[in-house]
């Protein structure tokens, strides 16, 4: 089957996709985006974490066909995504990140799609400008020694970036909970905590 969706702000199309393929396989093997990692393929390690319509998910558990028409952000597009967000925040300091609160609670649908339409527009616009090569979390992971083998890094970066988007000044317990779906076998997590704390501090400082 054919699957068409947007990855990191660019329309993508994959043909001859076997119906049992995961979004992860399509990203890695068909679209040349192997940054999302294939560590467990059972939703137990978080290495393949991507944003699907803004929501962090395990790409290994999304059927390729379910991505049809959706917006995906992978580690390859994280710097651009974070840059677009930070410019949006600076431009309009009154803008709220989360529009879900405006929905009537009694008949609330999942409105993330609507929220992210704006993100997509901004991301596309950002493509014409040279974004910084690294998102704040990426720089912080490098600076604090949070990367060893690096196989868990892409998923952790997506999860950590999303945490800081929601909670700019997280407690250690918040960080641990937000990253509890991302296994790392090398670091013992201490430097990863350091990295998220550092990224939070730098981002808050920059505002």
């Amino acid at each position: 089957m054919r699957v068409t969706f947007t990855v990191n702000g660019r329309p993508q199309q994959a043909d001859d996709v076997w119906e049992g393929e995961s979004l992860l396989y399509v990203l890695r093997e068909r679209l040349g985006l192997p940054g999302s990692k294939n560590a467990c393929e059972q939703g137990e390690c978080g290495s393949c974490t991507v944003r699907l319509d803004g929501v962090p998910v395990c790409a290994c558990l999304v059927a390729a066909g379910q991505a049809e028409g959706r917006e995906v952000v992978t580690v390859e597009g994280l710097a651009q995504y974070a840059d677009a967000r930070s410019r949006r925040t600076t431009q309009d300091t009154t803008a709220t990140q989360d529009t879900t609160d405006t929905t009537d609670a009694t008949t609330a649908a999942d409105t993330t799609t609507a929220t992210d339409a704006t993100t997509a527009t901004d991301t596309t616009a950002a493509a014409t400008r040279q974004p910084p090569p690294l998102a704040p979390v990426q720089q912080a992971f490098i600076d604090t020694g949070a990367i060893q083998c690096g196989f868990c890094t892409p998923g952790l970066l997506i999860a950590a970036d999303e945490l800081l988007e929601r909670t700019p000044d997280p407690s250690d317990a918040d960080i641990r909970e937000a990253l509890s779906g991302n296994l790392c076998r090398c670091t013992g997590y201490e430097k990863i905590l350091d990295a998220v704390r550092l990224a939070a501090a730098r981002t808050t400082e920059a505002r």
């Binding site: 119906e19 049992g20 995961s22 393929e41 059972q42 939703g43 395990c58 290994c60 558990l61 999304v62 059927a63 066909g65 379910q66």
Partner: peptide
């Protein structure tokens, strides 16, 4: 299949090969 958190594991690990997936 909705969230895929069960079904995709079974497909990824070759434990299930349904003729149809109903998204």
């Amino acid at each position: 299949i909705a969230g895929g958190t069960d079904v995709m594991v079974e497909i990824n690990f070759d434990r299930r090969r349904p003729d149809h997936l109903l998204d």
